[in-house]
Simulated scan of single mutants.
Amino acid sequence: MKIITETARLIIREFNLDDAQAVYNFNAPEEVNRYTGDAGMCESIEDATNIIKNIWLKEYAKYGFARWAVVLKETGAVIGFCGFKNETRIDAVDIGYRFHPDYWGKGFATESNQACIDYARANMNFDTVFGEVMPENVGSSHVLKKLGFKLVRQYQEDGYTIDSYAIQLQSASA
Rank of each mutant, 00 (worst) to 15 (best):
Q170W: 03
N123A: 02
G76T: 01
F81K: 06
F126V: 11
R89I: 05
T128A: 05
W104R: 08
H142L: 13
K2A: 12
E43D: 09
G107T: 11
P101Y: 09
I79F: 02
G148F: 09
Q170I: 05
A8H: 12
R121E: 03
N33K: 01
T5K: 09
G107I: 08
A92R: 07
Q21F: 00
E43M: 11
V129F: 06
D18Y: 07
Y165E: 05
N125L: 05
G80I: 01
E14H: 15
G37C: 00
S140L: 02
G159C: 09
Q170A: 13
K73I: 04
N27F: 12
F126C: 06
Q170L: 13
F65H: 11
A66C: 15
D91F: 00
V129D: 01
L57D: 10
N137G: 08
S44V: 00
A166W: 05
N50A: 11
A172D: 14
S44C: 00
E14S: 11
I52M: 08
E59H: 15
V133A: 06
S173D: 14
L17C: 13
D19L: 06
M1G: 14
F65P: 02
A115V: 07
T7A: 12
T128H: 10
M124E: 08
Y24D: 08
D18I: 02
D158K: 15
G131K: 03
A39D: 11
I79G: 02
R34S: 13
E136P: 05
A122C: 02
L57K: 14
E31A: 14
W56N: 07
R9C: 08
K58R: 14
E132T: 12
R67P: 02
G80H: 04
I12E: 04
H100C: 06
A61Q: 15
T49V: 00
N113T: 14
G76V: 01
S44H: 00
D127I: 13
M41V: 04
K145D: 02
R153T: 14
R34D: 13
K145T: 14
G37F: 01
N25W: 10
F81N: 09
K106P: 03
F84G: 05
C42P: 00
K106A: 04
I11Q: 06
I52G: 10
Y155D: 03
F84R: 09
E46V: 02
D18E: 15
A61G: 08
N54S: 03
P29I: 06
Q156Y: 11
T110S: 13
T36V: 01
T5I: 11
M1P: 10
N50K: 11
F15A: 06
Q170T: 10
G83S: 06
W68P: 03
E31F: 05
D94S: 12
Y35A: 08
V129C: 03
T88E: 10
G40A: 08
N137S: 07
F26P: 10
T5A: 12
V138P: 02
T161G: 04
A61I: 06
K85G: 01
D163Q: 15
K2G: 04
T88V: 12
D163T: 11
N137L: 11
N50E: 07
A172P: 15
K58E: 14
T128S: 10
D38Y: 01
E31P: 07
K53G: 09
A172I: 09
A122Q: 13
P101W: 08
N25K: 12
E74R: 13
M41G: 01
K146W: 07
A92V: 00
I52P: 08
I90R: 01
R9S: 14
S112L: 03
L169N: 05
V133I: 12
T75H: 05
